[in-house]
Each structure stands twice: as C-alpha cells, then as structure tokens.
C-alpha cells in the first residue's frame, strides 16, 4: 500500500488504506531510519504526535493568553468564551468530585479542550491536508490524532496511573489491595469458612482486576472507536464523487455532535474515575 503513495488514489481500497496509514519513523534491524514500521514497537507516528502537540499548543497558548491578562472587570469576548468553558468544566468537577485536588480541574479542562480540538480535525475535508503533504513529498498524513489508538491509549494510561496514584494515596496500599481482593464477595476468616477464603480472594482479584483494567481500556477505545468510525465514513463519502457534497455536509453536522460529546465523555469519565479513586466507600 505504500507503493501507491504520491500517485493519487488508484483504487478505493488503496485510497482508504492510504488515508488510514500513519506517517511513521523507526529504525530497522540495520539501524537505518525507515518509514515502514508495521509491528515495530519503537516506531513513532510522526503525524499523530505532530498534530496532537500542535493542537495542545493551540489550547495552551489561547488559554494562557486569556489567563495572563485576565481580570474581574468586564471581560472581552474571547475571555468570556474561555471563562464559559472553564466554568462548564469547573461545574462538572464540583458536581462529581467531592475531594479537594488542585489537579483534577485543570486535568479535566486540558482533556476536554485538547480532545475536542483533536476530534475537530475530523471536520477538515479528508483530502486537503494529506494531498498538500503529498505535494511536498510527505507520503502519509493522518490528521486526526484521536483516530490513532496510541494517542487515546496514551491519554487513558495517564488517567489510569492517576487513578492508581489517588487510590493508593487516599486508601493506602493496603486499601488498594483490599479493594482488589475483598470485593465483591467478602471472604470470612473465622471458623471452617477460612478454607474457602483463598479461593474467594482469587476470584475477587480476577474480577476486580478486569474491572480496574477495563477503565482505561474502555476510556481510550470509546474515543478511538467513535473517531475512527467517523473518519472512515468521511473517507467512504469522499469516494462518491460529486454526490459526496450533501452527504459530507450531513455527516459533518452529525459529527460535530460526536466530536463534542466524545470530548465531554472522556473528561467526565476521567473525573468519575478519579473521584471513585479518592472516595472511600
């Protein structure tokens, strides 16, 4: 599929494959930098990283601009907009997370805006940036970072580690282990029932580990799945020739909803997981 790059879409199959291929670099066995890295763990998806960091910078710079000269006086339009976003996030955090943390709210804001911006790249017509890139000699360009499973997993892993950190900090290592082993069936340590205790603990551990690992997995796969499917449908619509225009518009309108919703869900679930981790029940 790499061979067709730069020669325009030859077949539908090649066209789709080309659009779903990340621009990668890695070292091959000979120590050479190459761009075909199927299955190589040490490869880096340059396009995903580039767009995700670029959009992160867009978020940071735009919001920092407001934060640096913010005041309680009459806000400008941009400041008002930023404040609305901040207030939505703040309200969501306060409604869900009852502990005190300086991290949760900024984390939620970053996730919401950043994921939203990355999802928003989906609304740029699918050929514009890849073809421009091809014109200057870059063979592949996948512009929506959230359609790269590495990106969504990278974010959910950060959230997962925070969940572990908060659990251990608030309940202690013992509390964390107890949470994994003593639920949902409480083993009895008295009388003859003690014989069954190891079995129950093992059962609990399997069950709870799956529940724990399902959190980052579902968090990232939900976002990835939605965005990947949306992107794929855009690509399929783009194959239709002139008839793509009304279809593209309709799907884009619908996709605006998905873009916002998925960013919000990612943020909301992060808050929920972290509040579960810091609440004792």
């Amino acid at each position: 599929m790499a061979a067709e790059s730069g020669h325009g879409p030859l077949t539908s199959d090649a066209y789709i494959q080309h659009h779903l291929q990340n621009l990668q670099v890695c070292k091959d066995e000979a120590g050479e930098w190459v761009t075909h890295c199927g299955g190589n763990f040490w490869a880096v998806n340059i396009d995903s990283m580039f767009w995700s960091v670029l959009l992160g910078l867009v978020f940071v710079i735009l919001f920092r601009k407001v934060a640096s000269k913010t005041s309680a006086d009459k806000p400008g339009r941009w400041q008002a907009f930023v404040e609305i976003v901040v207030e939505i996030v703040d309200k969501s955090v306060k409604d869900t997370f009852h502990g005190k943390s300086r991290l949760i709210a900024p984390l939620a804001l970053t996730i919401f805006v950043w994921v939203f911006l990355m999802n928003l790249m989906d609304l740029i017509p699918v050929d514009w940036i890849p073809m421009t890139a091809a014109a200057v000699g870059i063979p592949y360009m996948k512009v929506v970072p959230t359609t790269d499973v590495n990106v969504t997993f990278g974010m959910s892993f950060a959230v997962f580690f925070l969940v572990l950190f908060y659990t251990i900090r608030n309940k202690g290592l013992g509390g964390f282990v107890a949470e994994l082993t003593l639920h949902p069936i409480a083993p009895s340590f008295k009388g003859p029932a003690i014989i069954a205790a190891p079995l129950i603990i093992a059962f609990n551990f399997v069950l709870e580990s799956v529940a724990l690992l399902a959190k980052p997995l579902s968090l990232s796969l939900r976002l990835f799945g939605n965005m990947f499917a949306g992107e794929l449908i855009f690509i399929l619509i783009a194959l239709l020739g002139i008839w793509q225009l009304p279809l593209h518009f309709g799907w884009a309108v619908f996709h605006v909803l998905i873009v916002t919703l998925q960013a919000f869900i990612f943020m909301m679930l992060t808050i929920v997981y972290l509040s579960l981790a810091s609440e004792s029940h």
Partner: peptide, 15 residues
Amino acid sequence: MDINMTLIGQTIAMI
C-alpha cells in the same frame, strides 16, 4: 493500528 512509542509520547505530552 499498532501500539508503538507514540503512546509514550502522547502520555508525556499530556503530562
């Protein structure tokens, strides 16, 4: 669709 170093890069960027 492969898991690779991008994951670590994204985590660092996010931090």
